[in-house]
Nucleic acid binder design. Structure first.
Lengths: 189, 189, 189, 189
DNA sequence: AGATAAACGAGACGGTACGTCCTGTCTTGTG
DNA sequence: CACAAGACAGGACGTACCGTCTCGTTTATCT
């Protein structure tokens, strides 16, 4: 393991910036280690020294700019869920955010290790925040006690993810609202 | 456009067989056009002449062996759904089927065109079969009239797909059953 | 062996014309069988049916437009030689004629058979015409009896060919005249 | 332009050795970049990095093993010339040396740049050595002052080259001697 | 006036080599 | 000793032609 102490923070930043820039500008096929290195003005070895795969660079580039998850808790479960789902659907509908998600998904599908990292670092916080919100609702009696909260969380994100990735339908506000209705029906007492 | 009439059916079959064999045997990274051509005893140009990308070859190889979708309709919606969901979960849990799905998903994420073809040829029939089964249930009054059947279908497959791809939980029979319970709750009158 | 009787004269002409046109227009590397066939609006097989190699097509294209060799015989050996050598040098200096000669030379170097044909059909008549002129001069006592006429002919064309192909000097009228002087010195009584 | 300082001398040698070996063993048509790379245990890019065309590799392979030109100067011009011409004729008559010369000639005819390099590196030293020998003879009065030494040199090599390439006659010792006689006649006072 | 058989255009085919690109490792100086 | 620079072996990419091989479709003889 390299002595991280010696690590050049400037190069690290340049690499992550370059990766983000390329992700934003070009096809994911053009986001190669060589292109990142060239763009960052960095030797390829400096990338290989600190990351094992391109996917890890991309992941780190994306996590770096991640904002902490804050879910609204107005007490009104339906309103809060609607806000969450609308925001999520809008995000997947946005071609720019969508492109990086797509990139990351490709990497995850070809590297189990990376998949784990993405899951734990990017995804889990998001999903657990929602789970916590649902738990609070359950305590208030807004959700039936028999409901499996993990399943409930997937009932929200699964359909959106599915529709986004397989393009089986439009990602609109109407869709978001319809989804919320069904999810609520599934967990209501 | 090439005169498809002149197409050599033997070569076509050899190519698709080779693609399937490689998909089954090796990492997707090793399923290259060159490997397929070599395995099929065919010139590379013969592949490029009839398919634009590797993904299209893989897609055609997979569609060729596809069995028509038959959904049970015993009249008992819960039983039928449980059977469907258990089978689907088992399929995604199977590493062999899973590998080709993973491969195809990677290709879809990097080629919109291919994504459309996969959706229309492989996915849509499956999803519509389920939708039809739900429509039948609705006519029998087993599903509330307000339910959006498209959303309902995604309520089934979305979570499975999500859990499979992001590995956020185990793909077991218990999970299948819990999912069925929630889906039913969502659409029941 | 094809029954030449059935041969389509129109196609034959189109092929030879196409070959000439390509020779004149492009690099010799682009003069491929496929290009000739496409240009001539002819199937590749029609070329392969009547010629064994590209070089033979080129040879036939060039021989077709060849004019019969006529050497001046004014009685004045020096004047006649000077005219011949100046014309030959000028021909090699002309980039257009030079290009086809270059092409043919390449083919000859990679095909002994073709080399023989070129020698016999294109070259020999030329060389023998010169040899005959020298023989006439010898009978008139303008050339010493000991002179080897074959060597003498090569004394004329060898240096020009050498200088053209290896670009060891300019192909000017002065050069032509200097060469004539030395050749005459070599064979004079 | 690559920093030649970083060049791997071992690879360079392996490539040139492989090229020579292939030239000696096989048809020139089989001397491909891929074959050279495979034989040398080298990536193709390593060849393309340092040479533009196959011809340049071949040229460098041939120049590397070139022995410095040493011409005899016994004072006897005729004897020295006879030795030189006999050796040259024998060399062209030798099928092994002839094959590489043929290969190089093909390359020269399709690449002006390479032609220049061959001329300057391989040919010129040889021709100038002969020119110098003739100059020495002229100073001794063995050659007439009016003789053009460049023309004289070509009077020697041109006919041999011509006869070799166009196969217009045998390359024997008798031919060598006849040629020497005529060349001497051309330049003698 | 058919019949028939070869030549024809078109272009698919199995191959070979091309020249480019990227991978992940190794090497060479610089700070 | 991390770094930039970039050479290296390897190997896939997609393209261009090779020479052979069907396809149907003209033609040109020969019944």
């Amino acid at each position: 393991m390299p002595a991280a102490a010696r690590r050049n923070e400037q190069s690290r930043r340049a690499i992550l910036d370059a990766a983000l820039a390329l992700l934003a500008e070009t096809d994911y096929a053009k986001v190669t280690i060589e292109a990142i290195a060239a763009r960052a003005g960095v030797g390829k070895q400096t990338i290989y020294r600190w990351w094992r795969r391109k996917g890890e660079v991309v992941l780190e580039a994306l996590t770096r700019q991640q904002t902490p998850v804050v879910l609204p808790d107005s007490g009104d479960l339906e309103a809060d869920l609607r806000e969450l789902v609308r925001a999520t659907v809008a995000e997947f509908a946005d071609p720019r955010l969508s492109a990086t998600t797509r990139a990351l998904t490709v990497e995850m599908l070809s590297d189990d290790d990376l998949a784990g990292q993405v899951r734990d670092r990017l995804l889990r916080p998001q999903l657990e925040a929602v789970r916590d919100r649902l738990a609070a609702a359950r305590e208030r009696g807004q959700i039936r006690t028999g409901a499996d909260l993990d399943v409930a969380v997937e009932l929200i994100f699964g359909p959106i993810f599915h529709r986004w990735q397989l393009r089986t339908g439009p990602l609109t506000e109407e869709y978001a609202d319809a989804l919320v209705d069904h999810v609520l029906a599934a967990v209501r007492p």
